[in-house]
Design a protein around this nucleic acid. Structure first.
Lengths: 237, 237
DNA sequence: GAAACTCAAAAGTACTACTTATTCAAGATG
DNA sequence: CATCTTGAATAAGTAGTACTTTTGAGTTTC
């Protein structure tokens, strides 16, 4: 297995902090952690080190390991994102991530139009076509797959490593959306057209047009979600 | 001192990876690391653990510690950002970070208009005023301070922890810009007016207007930098 | 030549001993 | 009585040794 002792304990303790079971300010002693998780001193120490670099905790001599305020956490750590998505705050986490992606993607589209390789431009067009085909066929799961591939490729082609890293986030948001009834039962023709528009703009290197089309996409998604959420009431922070 | 052994070795090794001294694919054995940095086994192991969680390295039994590809790194880790900014790739890193902030801030302005507390709205207006005053007085360093405070407050008021975390990034970009002659010798009246526009839009809760004004700000900054860089030639990736 | 088997190398785990910094409190000093 | 000093207790930090597990690579066997 790829799950050694270290990872098990890290997941357990990290998730406990991420989902609020261990409120900020809580003080843990490393000896206490060894008992609670049946881990050796070595494992406990290394787990604490990792949590410290994720800024979930800070260690002080003579005091112990202190759970930090949420505002201090490194919210971009993939592990933390995972823990939050798997916890009770999943809806709030998805909302946060969706806001992030809606901010990034139009800008990523712009730079993709300026910097994508010829291969990437071609492949983006091909993905757009497949997107349109699966939409017509109402094959929702295939559509999702191509949608994710489309957005991932665009982020990669932006040649900005910080944008590219958000592929996982976009994938999570897109799948999370279809999985929770936050998507119409069949892909909207408008959205498909906009994807083709983005691909065309990238193909011709039209940065402004690519950005505008992608902004339309995320705005549309935002409005849809807002409409659906308003029926239930907004999520608390 | 706050600099214990662990941190020293982490900084040394992390920086070496971040600035490319240790190219991806390089294999390090933990024993080798102990010698090179004169560190104990404990320290060497914990440092490797941390680098692993930052996705700068991966460890495999029977092989060693492998330096990962840049694309796999967690580029949002504050430490990694620091190492890159302090290394030879500083210009490229600043460009990447500037693209990130220019993507985020308009969106952050939108949500700040929707979710800021009354106190925050007031304080933002006050900062806008001080910004205008120092601009008129041509006090560039005071202007920078208020500028940073303005953008930080806006990000915080967006109530999105992932946006709020980028305060450090914005601070770095803004200071890096003035520090390297990438700013006019005195603040541009247009930029100041746009900041006041953002503050006014947030005060009245006008999301669209806040987003638009902030977008104008980052676009203006982008064009200025592009104009100055084009004289020297574009930075390589 | 392919599959199974063995061996050794290096990371992972565990444990013990020692060092250092920091808090808290008792006691000295003004 | 207040304040400063000192020291002891505590918990994290560092060091080192011993043992376990995984796995890549060479070797044997069919």
């Amino acid at each position: 297995m790829g799950t050694d002792r270290h990872e098990q304990v890290l997941d357990a303790l990290g998730a406990a902090i991420a989902n609020g079971s261990l409120v900020p300010g809580t003080v843990l002693r490393s000896e206490e952690l060894q008992e609670r998780f049946g881990a050796s001193r070595t494992v406990a120490r290394e787990v604490v080190r990792v949590l410290e670099t994720m800024r979930l905790t800070s260690s002080k001599r003579r005091v112990g390991v202190i759970v930090r305020e949420q505002a201090e956490w490194n919210h971009y750590d993939p592990r933390l994102i995972r823990w939050q998505l798997d916890g009770p705050a999943r809806p709030a986490a998805l909302a946060t991530l969706n806001e992030l992606r809606s901010a990034i993607e139009p800008c990523a589209a712009r730079y993709a139009a300026l910097r994508a390789t010829p291969e990437e431009r071609g492949k983006l067009g091909a993905l757009g076509e497949r997107l349109a085909r699966t939409a017509r066929a109402r094959d929702l799961s295939a559509f999702l797959g191509f949608d994710i591939a489309f957005h991932d490729l665009l982020l990669t082609a932006s040649r900005n490593p910080m944008f590219a890293q958000l592929s996982e986030v976009v994938e999570e948001v897109l799948t999370g959306r279809t999985g929770h009834g936050l998507m119409p039962p069949e892909p909207q023709p408008e959205a498909v057209a906009l994807h083709l528009e983005v691909a065309a703009a990238v193909a011709t290197g039209d940065a402004d047009r690519a950005e505008r089309a992608m902004r339309d996409i995320v705005v549309q998604a935002r409005d849809e979600i807002a409409a659906l959420v308003s029926e239930v009431g907004p999520e608390v922070e």
